[in-house]
Amino acid sequence: MSGHGRERTFEDLVAEGVAVPTEGWDFSWFEGRATEARPSWGYAVSLAGRLATARAALDVQTGGGEVLDFALGRAAPKAPVLAVATEGWPANVAKATALLRPRGIAVVAAPEDAPLPFADDTFDLVSSRHPVRPLWSEIARVLEPGGTYFAQHVGPRSVFELVEHFLGPLPDEVSAARHPDRERADAEAAGLEIVDLRAERLRIEFHDIAAVVHFLRKVVWMVPGFTVARYEPQLRALHEQIQSEGPFVAHSARHLFEARKPAR
């Protein structure tokens, strides 16, 4: 077990988890406090390979731009002539703009559930890491014929061991829309051809309650409306469980999604 939680009080750890900024998708703060196994396909490195051969690329729901920035760095000096990103959360728009502007990439503020603000047949590569909900008809529309959608999605019942600790048992329908088979059907209904679809479940360990608090503040859709005050009894019980039994174990669900818009 991590040394972070041995002598420190519940109140100290919770205060620390509350104090950490939540912008962007940099998870380096969790070092030594939580671990998550990574999918075997190495999404960011794989994306770099796609970017190195793309002419016009769009990254949807880019977060703080960290994954796209890393992938473009790996793809350099080959990079798309045109590359843009969208993001819906204002704090992340600002963070992604600061990170990606030096690479000549515009970040467009666009709500995740709104039509993409681009013309038909614009991009030969559309990418996304952990989109809230893929808008398949819009992805198909902005892809040029023969273009590719390459993404890593969150799968069904991801980290539900933790979610259900706070919310109680949830019906399967809650995450049914994220099931790879459902997404395959939706993508095909939008006119895309599935090239590759692989799913994995991956072990996560939370070593102290500060990591749990920060995670639930950062990934806001896990426990909607999460605050420490609202869920203090569940947090205190989980803190005591970690203290006595060691890390709390959950499992994330991820799938790699590659689809192609048929050539005319």
Rank of each mutant, 00 (worst) to 15 (best):
D26H: 10
I194C: 10
A94V: 13
V249E: 13
E245D: 14
G191Y: 07
R198V: 13
A15I: 00
H4S: 15
P39W: 02
V93Q: 04
A76S: 13
R103P: 02
T22P: 01
D113N: 15
E23T: 15
L125N: 03
G49V: 08
R178Q: 14
R230F: 06
F123R: 03
F166K: 08
L202S: 06
G155Y: 06
R260L: 09
R254P: 00
E66C: 00
R201S: 09
D121P: 02
F226R: 08
E36L: 14
A106P: 07
A56W: 01
V126I: 14
A19Q: 11
P171D: 10
A48Y: 01
V212T: 07
E240M: 06
G65Y: 01
A263C: 08
E16C: 07
P180W: 07
P117V: 03
R260K: 14
A83C: 15
A85M: 05
R260C: 06
R217H: 12
T22N: 05
L197E: 10
A151P: 07
F248H: 04
P224H: 03
D172F: 15
G246Q: 11
F150T: 01
E245Q: 14
L47E: 02
L170E: 13
D196L: 11
A83I: 12
L202V: 09
W41D: 03
A259Y: 04
V213P: 00
W29M: 05
P156G: 07
R103T: 00
P77D: 09
S137D: 15
D196E: 15
L99G: 02
A79L: 14
R230Y: 02
K261R: 14
R260F: 02
K218G: 11
R201W: 10
I209V: 14
E11I: 00
L143T: 02
W89L: 15
P262Y: 02
P180Q: 05
I209H: 03
L143R: 05
P117H: 03
L197A: 09
P224G: 03
R141P: 04
R133G: 13
V60M: 08
V159N: 11
E164K: 13
S127V: 06
F215A: 07
D59L: 07
G191V: 08
A229G: 13
D186M: 11
R55Q: 15
L238N: 03
F160Y: 15
P90M: 11
S2L: 08
T97D: 05
G49I: 08
T97G: 04
A229N: 10
F123S: 01
A109W: 07
E164L: 04
F70A: 12
E66T: 07
D69I: 00
L143D: 01
H179S: 13
